[in-house]
């Protein structure tokens, strides 16, 4: 290890220790396990700063936080899945003895023996780990993919196609009383006749041009090409608008993290 790295490490360790002691001192009045509590808060702050240090460049502190995060989170989700899916939903239907063991209420039912099938499929999936019998894992996979494909087939045909057709039927003439009336009452108010009609036209033309942009089996030349170009313009305006919309929301995330550092850890603001 380089001399400078050792120096940095030493400084961090000392700062950590100081923070721990000060925090423990501060918490001793109110908390029972104040030493552990103070350590945990300091550690959380250390991890927060380690992750933020990534913005400067990759460094050992970030690597430490990253690797710890991966290990702990993988175990967390596994435990969560184990308790909430297998223990809570499967075991109570499978056997009274096992439910007894896991302290779960047994749920007797007429068709509970069917739940052995996913257990078998799950075990077949684990055959993946075997070199010779790995191919068996394709069966449960086929079941998963087939079921969801069937589900998605009808679901998206309905929500993303059929229901969009009727949603696009917007009146392109609103309160239409002739050209003369239109021009004599012309204004740019947001709820005026012109803006409302313009909006419906933009929606209609926008959807058409957007769809034309997504045509794959025809060359985008001539009128078709122009429409497709208008389509991509509208797409880009939309992306810009939703990008701009998100910017502000994201900045508040940072404010939240800074609050933790300055309030919960350092106690500088109350």
């Amino acid at each position: 290890m380089k001399r400078s790295s050792l120096l940095v490490l030493a400084v961090v360790v000392i700062l950590f220790a100081i923070s721990w002691i000060l925090k423990a001192n501060q918490l001793s009045a109110t908390e029972e396990n104040y030493i552990l509590e103070a350590f945990l808060i300091t550690f959380a702050a250390f991890l927060t700063l380690s992750v933020l240090s990534f913005l400067y460049k990759d460094n050992p502190f970030y690597k430490f936080a990253e690797h710890l995060f991966v290990g702990v989170s993988a175990a967390f989700w596994m435990c969560l899945g184990f308790w909430s899916t297998l223990v809570k939903n499967l075991i109570p239907r499978l056997s009274e003895g096992l439910s007894e063991f896991f302290n779960e209420p047994y749920m007797p039912g007429d068709y509970n023996f069917f739940f052995w099938i996913p257990v078998i499929l799950g075990i077949l999936l684990l055959m993946r780990l075997s070199k010779e019998h790995g191919w068996i894992a394709r069966w449960p996979l086929a079941f998963i993919v087939g079921t969801t494909a069937g589900l998605n087939f009808v679901r998206y045909l309905r929500s993303d196609f059929i229901e969009q057709i009727s949603a696009t039927f917007v009146p392109l003439l609103i309160e239409w009383q002739g050209v003369g009336h239109f021009f004599s009452n012309f204004n740019l108010a947001i709820d005026g006749q012109f803006v409302m009609m313009l909006s419906n036209w933009v929606i209609f033309v926008g959807v058409m041009c957007g769809l034309i942009y997504f045509f794959f089996s025809k060359e985008h030349t001539g009128v078709f090409g122009t429409a497709s170009r208008v389509g991509i313009w509208i797409l880009m305006i939309t992306f810009g608008a939703s990008f701009g919309y998100t910017v502000m929301g994201r900045i508040s995330l940072l404010v939240g993290r800074l609050t933790f550092l300055f309030k919960d850890w350092l106690g500088l603001i109350s």
Partner: peptide, 12 residues
């Protein structure tokens, strides 16, 4: 307005 149109085209 344009957002709705583009979203719809993408969704379809």
């Amino acid at each position: 307005v344009p957002n709705l149109a583009a979203q719809r085209a993408i969704v379809i």
